[in-house]
Amino acid sequence: MIENDKIPVNSKVLVWARESIGQSRNHVVEKTGINLRRLNQIENGEKHPGLEELKLLAKTYKRTIATLLLREAPQEKPLPKDRRTIDSKDIGKFHEKTILAVRKARAFTQSLIELKTDAGIAIPKFKYSASVDSNVDELAQTIRTDLNLNEIRELENINDILEAYIDKVESLGVAVFQMSLTQDNLRGFSIIDEDIPIIGIKRGSEKPTSKIFTLFHELGHIVLNRGGLCDLSIKTTSEIEKWCNAFAAEILIPKSDLLSRDIVQDYKYKQNKVWLKKDLIELSNYFHVGPLAILRSLLTNKLTTSKYYNEKHQVWNKPSFGRSKNPKGRDIAKETIREKGKNYISLAFSAYDKNRIDIKDLSDFLGVKLSYIPKTRELLNSR
């Protein structure tokens, strides 16, 4: 192919597209088959790519060809701050799947705002704020009372409980999405630089009780106005992460409520600090959290020992803990509703039913092919 058949592009846009998804040139060579010398020439502006090369690059960078043809690289908001408890050499480095999850959450939020605005639904302005010096117990209790979280105790199905907690948090003017976070040991993230704050929680193998704790940990970040990408490690030295963990714990396991439980009173009276698993499970079922979260609260209140807690933490916090032994095939409709939330999906279908958007728009809002729309509606109506 002669050079006249190539497509003029701004090489800086191509470099931006690659770097914005955290890919090295060697990775692009492996993914596209374009040799390194050729890629260097394209990125240095010495040569222009052909159409097939441009298609390969667009697919690899998860961008449209139109984006790669822009005259200048667009300004994009950065990733939230890295708040993982990992070796410092890895701080700020993320897998492309993580970057895409954040990018998707930002896009979902703009779509959610569009759907609500079009439907005439006002989005409340998030009103809570604090610093790491604020009394975490008092603030957690205030929010717990404002949201009337006690009424969720009446629910029995843990997935219904998770949805109810998400509804409560969204009522504060927060967008909540369940994202595919399969890399970088992430449990969740929070974004504070959009028109409304965003919480992303890990879906998939994550247990509902773990998702619930992550939801309120990330809400803590929004209260502090300090977003981030988090692994929720209890070994963190970050005061922000410690505060958010304490905030989530007090929201979900109020100290006064925990200490008033008969089973806790019994252990306290007997000065027994080694807890039976069945008793931890009984408490975890009541508070809608995992047994490890209960044990952590008991440790905070000096009702168990660090040695016993650490032993259980090693067993219960392994990456494989809680994963399905017999994973099923993908259910696109279910994934779509879990990812974007039933409120978002309901708004999209409502806009379609009222002829404010057409079927193609609905497909775009849902992020699914036309063939999956009937199944998605059927599943939504059955919930």
Rank of each mutant, 00 (worst) to 15 (best):
C230K: 09
Q110W: 03
L219D: 00
Q178G: 05
T98I: 02
R383A: 15
F177T: 06
E52Q: 12
N10W: 02
Y267K: 04
L68Y: 00
I294W: 05
L224W: 06
T64L: 09
T236Q: 09
Q141R: 12
Y286L: 04
D87H: 11
K312V: 02
D167A: 12
E339A: 10
F321I: 13
R38I: 06
P8A: 09
P254S: 06
I2V: 13
Y308W: 14
S324D: 11
G173R: 02
N285G: 14
G220N: 04
S238E: 12
I332P: 08
R203C: 02
L36N: 09
K369C: 13
E206C: 10
E30P: 05
D133T: 14
I332Q: 13
S11F: 01
V223W: 10
D90W: 14
S306H: 15
E250D: 09
T64D: 09
L347Y: 14
E239V: 13
L252I: 06
D137A: 15
T85L: 08
V264L: 03
E53P: 06
P49M: 03
R330P: 03
P124C: 03
S363F: 14
A105I: 08
S171F: 02
I86F: 02
K340I: 13
K104A: 01
I21Y: 00
I357V: 09
R71S: 06
V28L: 01
D90E: 12
E156S: 09
L112A: 07
P327K: 03
E19R: 01
K125V: 15
F108D: 04
L292D: 08
S134W: 08
F365Y: 12
I196E: 01
V315S: 08
S205Y: 10
T304D: 07
I222D: 09
S171Q: 06
K340Q: 13
L292P: 04
K202R: 05
K354G: 12
D87C: 07
R261H: 10
V368M: 09
S171V: 02
R203M: 06
I345R: 04
Y308H: 05
N10H: 05
L280A: 07
A130T: 03
N326P: 10
S233I: 04
V9A: 10
M179I: 06
Q41S: 11
R103L: 05
Y61D: 00
N159R: 11
K211Q: 14
N26A: 14
H48E: 13
K59Y: 07
K235M: 10
I196W: 01
T117K: 14
I222M: 07
D184T: 02
L295D: 05
G173M: 03
T60F: 06
R383P: 15
G228M: 01
S320A: 10
P74R: 00
L39Y: 05
I34A: 08
I234Q: 15
D137P: 07
I161M: 10
P8R: 09
S346Q: 13
P327E: 05
S210Y: 09
K202Y: 04
L162Y: 07
D361T: 02
N40D: 13
F126P: 00
Q110C: 07
A333N: 15
